[in-house]
Design a protein around this nucleic acid. Structure first.
Lengths: 341, 341
DNA sequence: CTGAAAGCGCTAACAA
DNA sequence: TTGTTAGCGCTTTCAG
């Protein structure tokens, strides 16, 4: 069933039927009722593609996604996506997930933008210096960044959790417990979240009157294996820290494995705080202190809102949201630092 | 930049440019080279929407997805999706994820099919009696089921792991170790995978000369909480089983939590086998015996292949694949059943 | 309030 | 091998 047929059936022009269906005000109430009834009766739905071509909009937003186990394992990210699609669907928009190998990621952006496959893009896992954002800004293509970057001269729409303050919370807590040797296990510092958390760590130490010890700051870990290796290195160090902060929950899994393997226990032998918390599916989750990014699903809703505003032509300078992480204290950081010196 | 402009630039007709770009054989080699060079130079990419309208294809397949934590936590499912998008993207097709609340899931199917938003649909988490498959078959809309159903009179394309034989493997292993009181924790038996595993359980017991004990067959669990409750019930039962099989890895997380909480250990106090294995991120994963569904990413590739064949008009009767699960033995089932009776 | 007509940007017969 | 000409199914001016 297509529009023309429906119109013929009703003895109306396609234009009127289209207007009735799309809720234009000028249509006679009775006519509209007839049209809607007939559409329902015959199960008519407008061909999405044709409508898209006519209106110029695709009613979909894209997420270019290099599928990697580490992303899939991040429950916060997945919840954000879930919230995002929820909100988009309310607006009759789709989320199109486009997988791209890391190597040709930029080329994929080019292709998607140039082919107008989507109305806008969500950029996740931002880098400190992010060529994707440069490209999008250069082409003036609508996007919302989930996470910020540090090299953009022009404003852009973004949502982010406050990585600096979140890490400061963690350090302040440990310092208050008397810890003076606090270690940090970071993801690669080219990733913006890791870079900011790293900065927050240094800031936090400074606030506590401590100075950073390069030996206690390991980076590069965004996998369980790397986290495990880093933790083993710390535990075997001559100058062992009394507390460890892990800046991401994927590496944290390896950290916990390392503790198990060496017969150590978080909260007894060493203090541990995980940024993002252990994946909620993880059994011991409740026992590990965490800096949590609250309400990830709602964060997805907000990203959708920012996107719609951007598509609506609102000034990007106002389209930012910075949410505060929260400290969820549990047993794992309960070791007073003084026991260890 | 649109096709017409590019054509004008090259002093060619739009048709020729289109043909050159789309690899039609009749185009002069030199002409094609010129066109491709110019397209590259100007970063021309065909407008996807216009192409879609002209060809009648959307070059995308859909996955209608009720976002729930349990799905997101299932790494096998996520890997399958990853593999699916990988293969589709090779064919320049997208996977469109459309989120739908459980309540209006069927209505969403109607809307998507009628609006021709996608060329085909992947149906996941099939039910023993699945109205979605009925609807798709009735409308003759292309689809591939990930998992089977049991009420379809007509053939359809599907991919599935052999749930019956997988569960038989688990039972046979435990029986061989001397266990005579084997319990099963199942997801809802309206879900086809759970139903089939349940059947495989009964079959497996029969092969071992054992008869099923209703007290040891609990169902309804597809969440950590439900798994935990079921396990606690079994552990506190007067007639305690010496071995437990959990039919899904989400509930299994709760099962492990229950063991921890009651101070029991899998492989020492009770034998445990998990269908699907514990999520790979889970620390103790390696220690838990599992029936694994091998190569989920390749399974995604296969689903893509089946879909393309279906869109190509191949007979659905031949478009099925049944993969065999594998037993990965570990310490968790090492308790001889004879110790317990 | 409704209709006629002109596209949206591309592809695909049919001609040449 | 290339060009001409119609559409794909809808929306949207512009008239009426």
């Amino acid at each position: 069933m297509k529009l023309r047929q429906l119109a013929a059936l009703l003895q109306l022009s396609p234009a009127t039927v289209s207007r009735a269906l799309n809720g234009f005000a000028e249509v006679n109430a009775q006519t509209r009722a007839r049209v809607l009834a007939a559409a329902k009766l015959h199960g008519y739905h407008a061909n999405t593609i044709a409508r898209k071509l006519a209106t110029g909009r695709t009613d979909s937003i894209g997420l270019i996604y290099p599928f990697k186990p580490s992303d899939l394992g991040d429950p916060v990210f997945l919840e954000v996506i879930a919230g995002l699609t929820e909100s988009l669907n309310e607006q009759h928009m789709d989320l199109v997930i486009i997988s791209a190998a890391k190597a040709n990621e930029l080329a994929t952006y080019q292709r998607v933008m140039s082919g107008r496959r989507v109305d806008g893009l969500v950029v996740a896992r931002t880098l400190v210096s992010d060529p994707r954002l440069d490209l999008l800004q250069e082409k003036n293509f609508p996007f919302v960044a989930y996470g910020r970057s540090q090299q953009q001269s022009l404003p852009y729409a973004w949502f982010d959790y406050d990585n600096v303050s979140g890490m400061q919370l963690a350090v302040a807590r440990l310092a208050a417990l008397g810890h003076r040797k606090i270690a940090l296990i970071s993801a690669s510092l080219t990733m913006n979240f890791a870079n900011q958390r790293h900065q927050g760590f240094i800031d936090g130490l400074a606030s506590a009157g401590l100075s950073p010890d390069p030996q206690h700051m390991l980076n590069g870990g965004l996998s369980p294996l790397e986290g495990k290796q880093a933790m083993i290195q710390l535990l075997n160090a001559v100058d062992q820290p009394s507390a460890v902060i892990v800046d991401n929950n994927i590496a944290a899994i390896g950290v916990v494995q390392a503790l198990q393997q060496l017969g150590k226990q978080a909260g007894r032998d060493i203090a541990l705080i995980v940024f993002g918390g252990l994946p909620s599916l993880y059994g011991e989750s409740a026992a590990i202190s965490a800096i949590m990014q609250p309400k990830p699903r709602q964060a997805g809703h907000v990203i959708a809102k920012l996107m719609l505003a951007r598509l609506n032509g609102e000034d990007v300078a106002g389209l930012n949201q910075l949410w505060q992480p929260e400290l969820i204290a549990a047993a794992s950081d309960a070791v007073p630092g003084s026991l260890h010196g």
